[in-house]
Structures are given as structure tokens and as C-alpha cells.
Design a protein around this nucleic acid. Sequence first.
DNA 1: CTGAAAGCGCTAACAT
DNA 2: ATGTTAGCGCTTTCAG
Lengths: 283, 283
Amino acid sequence: MGYTPNRAAQALATGQTRRIAFLSPSMGLRFFQEVANRFHQILLEDRYEIVSGELDRRTMGSTHPEGLARMGLDGVLMYGGGLGSFVSFKGPIVNMGPHCSEKYDAVNVDLYPASRRAVESLLDSGAKRVAHVLTPSTQKELDDRYRGYTGVMRERGKETEYILTPDWSRASARQTIQDYVKEHGCPDGLFCANDDIAIGTYRGLRDMGISIPEQVRLIGCDGIEDTEYLDPPLSTIVQPFEDMCATAWRFLKNRLKKGTIPRQAETLEARLMMREQMEELSK
Amino acid sequence: MGYTPNRAAQALATGQTRRIAFLSPSMGLRFFQEVANRFHQILLEDRYEIVSGELDRRTMGSTHPEGLARMGLDGVLMYGGGLGSFVSFKGPIVNMGPHCSEKYDAVNVDLYPASRRAVESLLDSGAKRVAHVLTPSTQKELDDRYRGYTGVMRERGKETEYILTPDWSRASARQTIQDYVKEHGCPDGLFCANDDIAIGTYRGLRDMGISIPEQVRLIGCDGIEDTEYLDPPLSTIVQPFEDMCATAWRFLKNRLKKGTIPRQAETLEARLMMREQMEELSK
DNA sequence: CTGAAAGCGCTAACAT
DNA sequence: ATGTTAGCGCTTTCAG
């Protein structure tokens, strides 16, 4: 019978909205867009709806003016650790990414080993000056990339060098690297805190006529599709985001079914993907 | 008073969900992701929620299994013309993009003049063989890019050459161009139906050691951010998507306020953005 | 101008 | 089994 039920009435009667939020630090980053996209596809199969928002104290844990609570959510999938701002939402939360909160079900992504290997490979391929490009918002003590970089550099007796770009955007990184190189000369190895920064840096370097990888090697982080389409393709630390999404959703569904189960937690390891920069160099 | 109203109950009582859908042919394309993102930001200001879906006869005009009707929508923002599959949704619809349907409020984007100029500029810069890279799904009679390419080539007495890539993905384009070049040799000008195809083509060409822009000039379409970060940056036809989004939402809000107003329609013109490929060549 | 009551469209519990 | 009814939490109307 060609009749379509009313979702709002259904939600009112059952107390279930079949709506889930995906929250990340910033939907402007390509990586989070890819994650949101993936969740969209996965949840669709289970007839759930996904809305994306940003994590931010100003917005009470959601881009929506009234915060999370008023959105009518069955649950929350959240990328990024420790947020005190979530007191407003009382339903199930699954945390994912590096250094998840102990309070929630968690899909941890460990970037530390790959970060170390990234810096090591830069050094091993002959780089003298290896710098880390990051944003001021980084929690240094917790950040795997920062710790990996700093640790390896210390062990090898190399001097650390940090390049701060104001935010995570490509445009900022593009400008930042140019200003930096003009003032301090150019490092020959750059470990960037994410792929958008790496791509912006790539562009900035090329703007100045600096060649990659001959003069500078670049490694990014996250593993977004775009890195593969540059020339040369950018090496990057790939987050296993499909696994991460699938696991996070599995955890949340379990929690939705019966709320009183022990905490679920799993750790996935990111892997360093070296692309043909090295080969190109050796020819 | 720290109390949060229940959306479902509100929706039931008022008959308004404050939820809008953005529908496009495929959320896998970067351009539509940028558009969806933009709508997200705009609608947020007005306290509306946006959900994205795909246009497809299989799915009854929405990725959701039950189709649009069951989603509890106040209105629909839809990119791409003529869809008969939308009979299911009875609320207000605003159409946008090239060749909008006459049935709805419309924000037309005219790609024709820019497409002609793209092909002309390829020819004017000395290209002998200019091909058009497109997908089989293209409605040739309606497509501004196809018509622009074909028109200019005919007028100049040049032979047309079409390269068909199975879908709109970068990966397909990367493979397609390589197969094509191996069999037919390489054109020296390529007008690609969108930027993802252009980026995939760029990658495929570079895989074969073909240099851009020295051996081949590339022009894409849509104006996504990524084109600017390749080296050399890709020229592209930029859709005025911020204007488009703002206007579409304005139209929809008018319609939401009072349904019995005359049809609203506007046309925006895309512009060809030539990037430094030409300068690089001349130096 | 303030307060009570009807009803939005559905689901689930109940009674027949 | 099938049919009936109460109630989900809000808005809006209508009475006081």
C-alpha cells in the first residue's frame, strides 16, 4: 500500500530517532569528510541517518547552536579524544582516533610506530634537516606524531625544528612554508601533521621552485585519496579508516541493543605508506 | 532553564522537521561534497539540518531505501536536471546546476560559454589534437561541455576525438587515459568533463612520463580546491557554487514561507579559470 | 493575559 | 489472532 509513515511520529512513539551524529574537530579537513562519507554509506545499510558536526567548546559539542542534546540523536560517533563538552549528551558515545577517552567505547588508532618510521625513513634517505610541520593546537604530550618525531630526532642526536602553521588548512600551510623558507632556509625533510598540510606545503614549495623529492622529501599523515594524485605522489601515514568506521559502528550498535555491556575497546595501527618518491630519486 | 526540547515531538506538532535534503548524482565526487559542505554551513545559520543523498532511479530519488518521502523533509535542494523519480516527494524542490527542470524553482549554471572558451584556448595555444574526456552517462544533446567542445571543433574544421571513461572517478580516469594513449597515441589538449577526471588523467599521464603542460594541456570543470594544489595547477571551469548555494537556499526559504509564489529562476555563468600552465610554457 | 485541553501520527500494551 | 486505546512531548487553539 503506497503509504509512507511519518518519521517524527515514529520517533515520538518509540523513543528512537534512528539518527546518529558523527563529530570531528573540523569538517573542513578532507580526512574527516572521507570518514563522514564512509559512515554515511555504512549506516545507510542499517537504515540509520547520519549528521555531521564539529567538536568545539563554543558550540557545546556540536555545530548546532543548541548543542548535541537538542538534535534528537540515538548515539554519537566521535573522532578525537577527551572532550568535557559532551556532558550534554546522555546516550551512547563511541570514541575513535588517537588517544581515545577511557570513558567511552573506543577504537584507538595508533600513529606512533608509523610516525617514528616516517622520520627514520626521512633521515635514512639522507636528509640533514628534518622538520615537523604542525599546528599550535597540537597537544604535544599526547600527540603520536609529535612524540614520534621528537623521539627519533633525540635518539639520533639531531636537532629538532618545528614549523607552525596557524590551522589545518592547505592555504595556510602553503603560505607558512614560504615564509619559513625565506627566513630560515629550507629543510630537506618535512614530516607534516596531516595530508592537507602536506599538500599545502607541496604547493608552497613548488611556488618557490623547490623540487620534490630532489630538494625536499615530504611525508603526510591520514592517507587521503588526494595524496596519491600529486606528482610525485606523497608518502603518508595511512589511517585504517574503513576498519575504524566499521568497528566503531559495530560497537555503537552493540551499545544501542543493550546498554549494560562492558566497555568495548580495540586498537588499530596506522601504517606508513612510502610512495614512489624514493624510486624517482634513485633513477 | 536547562531544558532541551524534543525534536520529534516538535516536528509532530508543527508539521515541520527543519530538515532539508541535498541530492546529487553522486556523493563520491569532490564537487558535490564541497556543495554539501557549503549547504551544511549555510543552513546551520538558519537552524536547519541537512542530509545528503544520491539521485538514482534504483533508490527512488534518494540513497535511503524507502526513498525521499519517508525521510521527513521540509524541502529538497537538488543538483542536476530532469528526474522523473521525484514523484514521491510532494514538498518544495529547488533545482540547481546545468539545465534545470522547468517544474521547479531553479538556479541554472551555464557552462556553455566557458566550455567553448576552454576548447578555444586549447586550440589557440597551439594544440593540434584536442580531445574531450567524458563518461558514457553524458546526455550529449544537453551537455554544455559536450556541445561547447563539439561546436568549436566543427567551426574550426578540427576532427573531434572522444575519450570515454566508465565513471566519474579519479581511478577510472587514470586507467582510461593510459589505455587510450597506448592505443591511439596522445592528444596534446584534453578537455575533461570534470575535475576528478582531470586529476585522474593528470596522474595517468604522469605515470607514463608524459609532461604537463609541455606535451599535453589539461582543462577540467567545476573548480574544486584540489586543482589548485597540483603542479602545475589545473585550469578549470569554475562553477560559482557559493552563489549557487546561497541563491538556492533563498529560493527554498521563500517557498517554505508561502508556497503560492511564482516560479523563481536565475542563471549563473561559470567562468573559465586559466592557471599558470600557459605562463610556464612560455618561459 | 494566563492556563487547560485537543491533537499531531504513530507504536505498544491491552482487551476482546 | 485481531481490534481498540493510551500516550510519546510538544504546539496551538480555545476557554477562563
